[in-house]
Design a binder for these strands. Structure first.
Length: 593
RNA sequence: GGGCGCGUAGCCUAGCCUGGAUAGGGCACCGGGUUCCUAACCCGGGGGUCGAGGGUUCAAAUCCCUCCGCGCCCGCCA
């Protein structure tokens, strides 16, 4: 772990914000007013059209003055400070402007000094566990599930660089009916399958990737079991065997096999995990039994007629029709929720903060989990990031059975094909390997950015044209800006430091706007790490690339004379900043494309 | 029926937590830009009852209430 950095050394705005807070307090005291010290910094708007802006409305209301009047009096009461060029009122605001060169200097110094650490260490905190994806190993990923992986992986990256030790966990369900059906299928010869299930495998000559092969008959078996009691009973028997701790030898191997196939797809998106937690472990190690015992003695525990146990959910306000939440079956076995409680207790013992990324259809489960943790006297609870499942263009659910699901592998391959065509259309000088590498990175970047740019709670209809867009607010747009910056440095013979510059030469309209955006990365990262609003980082990345493109068109870099070195330094800073953000978004920065 | 989420131009989206200076972007559309650092780009233009109504406030896309539309959940499934 790196040593904790003080705010002034990670955020270029910190000294000015502090100075303005001091100044405003002094000014307010002179006017006989009282500013709430803690609330003040969060009200100051930084890095916008005005350097620092303080809205006086709230103070005006409490001191019974008109805002404009108060702003004028307050602005002139603020003691003059070398930090600011001016402190003036504009309507109901007190605006402080700083010397343009000063912000340029503070920002470039920080970026070029900290390099890949610029934006890091902005919200240091204790160990965090982020659980995400956790899809059942019963077949390939479809893109609905991928939203979870992309949000979770991005959040993990941001929280980590912000200064918390992060562990990502994939919770693997190997206990339930779904896993049992896979084992039911592949622990017997295909000839032993029901005809309708055999037909599902015979039909298409689909992918040979293991998760596709193993998962293909699953929907058909699921449908068949609903019609055929004998098959259902056979599967139920297998579920009992698995729960009793004596599963068929194939059981674990099949789950691992399919999971490996799924993870291979995710790794193309740059998504990986620190730990895999198998649900069965909590049954085996006795922690589920201990949870059951503790729950039976919990304040709201009640026994049902057939011997099942529940808690009375009324006092927790859970919208259950039955008002009872069962945690132990009549036959004494556990349920998913019980095992999930054991899992979360184990996480709470290791980490300061838990984050679970879940589809919003799991919201009730999440609230139930919180209720059970409270019931057990655990004061902490996970933070939930809930996202809406992707739907089909018609608004329906992505369903494997109905054939409306889009496989991640298909989306990726299609994106790579398209990206390759784009590269070939404009670059004839590249080797095949280079083209392929760029195409893969562009494709993955497009998909990741497409998903992460939208707030998780927003419902999204999946449309191929939008997911594969390489223009405008897209991953490739960002990669393109990065490639341009890289190209400038290459051609300018400036691929390495030092980057000498004269801040006074970087105060044109475009340079100032660009520096402003660069300067906001640290505060943006801090916000995202705390709020888990990862889409904000995507918005920031687009703003940075956009501003750089404007600068690029308006201001010559290599052909300039006096300002050449300074502009190169600015480009180097932008490239560093954009590279950092792209990396944290899981979008590969490309030197050329 | 109850609970939760969403509703911002033809389409997509930011801003909502913590009310505040002309509601930011993108796609599509129209008009421009390449003897010059990568045109996956840039410049300009049109297009908005911020779902509807009421309330609070000096001030509401943002807070409160009601309603409408869409989605999801309410298993001794996971």
């Amino acid at each position: 772990m790196t040593e904790p950095a003080t705010p002034g050394t990670v955020d270029p705005w910190a000294p000015w914000t502090a100075a303005l807070v001091e100044g405003l307090h002094a000014g307010a005291r002179a006017l006989g007013l009282d500013l709430a010290r803690d609330a003040l910094p969060s009200q100051i708007e930084i890095g916008g059209e005005h350097d620092l802006a303080f809205p006086v409305h709230r103070l005006a209301a409490s001191s019974h003055q008109t805002p404009a009047d108060l702003a004028a009096r307050l602005a002139s009461a603020v003691p003059s400070s070398p930090a600011f060029e001016s402190v003036r009122s504009a309507g109901p605001y007190v605006n402080a402007t700083i010397a343009p060169e000063a912000l340029v200097r503070a920002t470039l110094e920080l970026v070029l000094g900290r390099k890949e650490r610029y934006g890091c260490d902005t919200a240091p905190a204790g160990p965090v566990c982020i659980e995400h994806t956790s899809a059942n190993p019963t077949g390939p990923f479809h893109i609905g599930r991928v939203r979870n992986a992309i949000i979770g992986d991005t959040l993990a990256r941001v929280v980590r660089v912000a200064g918390s030790p992060v562990t990502t966990q994939y919770y693997v369900d190997d206990m339930g009916r779904q896993a049992a059906m896979i084992t039911w299928l592949w622990s017997r010869p295909v000839a032993g399958w029901p005809p309708s299930v055999q037909a599902a495998v015979d039909a298409p000559a689909g992918r040979t990737k293991v998760d596709h092969v193993r998962g293909r008959p699953y929907p058909a078996l699921s449908a068949h079991a609903k019609q055929d009691p004998a098959t259902a009973a056979s599967i139920a028997e297998l579920v009992r065997r698995i729960e009793s701790g004596e599963p068929p030898v194939e059981h674990a191997r099949l789950a691992h096999e399919i999971l490996d196939g799924m993870l291979a797809s995710l790794s193309r998106l740059g998504v990986g995990f620190d730990e895999f937690v198998w649900e069965s472990q909590f049954v085996r190690d006795g922690s589920v039994a201990r949870v059951l015992e503790r729950l039976r003695g919990a304040p709201h525990a009640v026994r049902e007629e057939n011997g099942a146990w529940a808690i009375d959910a009324t006092s927790y306000g859970l919208p259950k029709e039955s008002e009872r939440v069962i945690f132990q079956r009549g036959d004494g076995t556990s349920l998913y929720i019980t095992r999930d409680i054991a899992y979360h207790l184990s996480k709470l013992a290791r980490f300061d903060r838990l984050v679970d990324v879940l589809g919003q259809d799991h919201r009730l489960h999440a609230r139930t989990l919180e209720a059970f943790l409270t019931e057990l006297g655990e004061p902490r609870a996970p933070a939930f990031v809930l996202y809406q499942d992707l739907t089909t263009p018609e608004g329906g659910r992505m369903s494997t059975r109905g054939g409306s699901a889009v496989w991640l592998d298909d989306l990726l391959d299609e994106a790579v094909d398209r990206a390759r065509r784009e590269v070939l259309a404009r670059r004839s000088d590249l080797e095949v390997e280079q083209v392929n590498a760029i195409a893969e990175a562009v494709a993955a970047g497009a998909i990741r950015f497409h998903v992460v740019r939208v707030a998780p709670e927003k419902p999204v209809k999946f449309r191929w044209e939008e997911a594969l867009s390489f223009e405008g607010r897209s991953g490739p747009f960002l990669q393109y800006a990065y490639a341009r910056a890289s190209s400038l440095l290459r051609k300018g013979g400036a691929e390495r430091p030092p980057y000498p510059y004269d801040a006074a030469q970087l105060v044109g309209v475009e340079e100032r706007a660009l520096v402003r955006v660069v300067s906001r990365l640290p505060s943006t990262v801090a916000y995202v790490a705390r709020s888990a609003h990862v889409h904000t980082l995507a918005g920031y990345a687009h703003e940075l690339a956009d501003q750089f493109n404007r600068f690029y068109h308006a201001v010559p870099v290599l052909d300039s004379t006096d300002a050449r070195a300074s502009r190169i330094a600015l480009v180097a800073a932008v490239r560093q900043t954009l590279g950092n953000v792209l990396t944290w978004l899981g979008v590969t920065p490309l030197e050329t494309m």
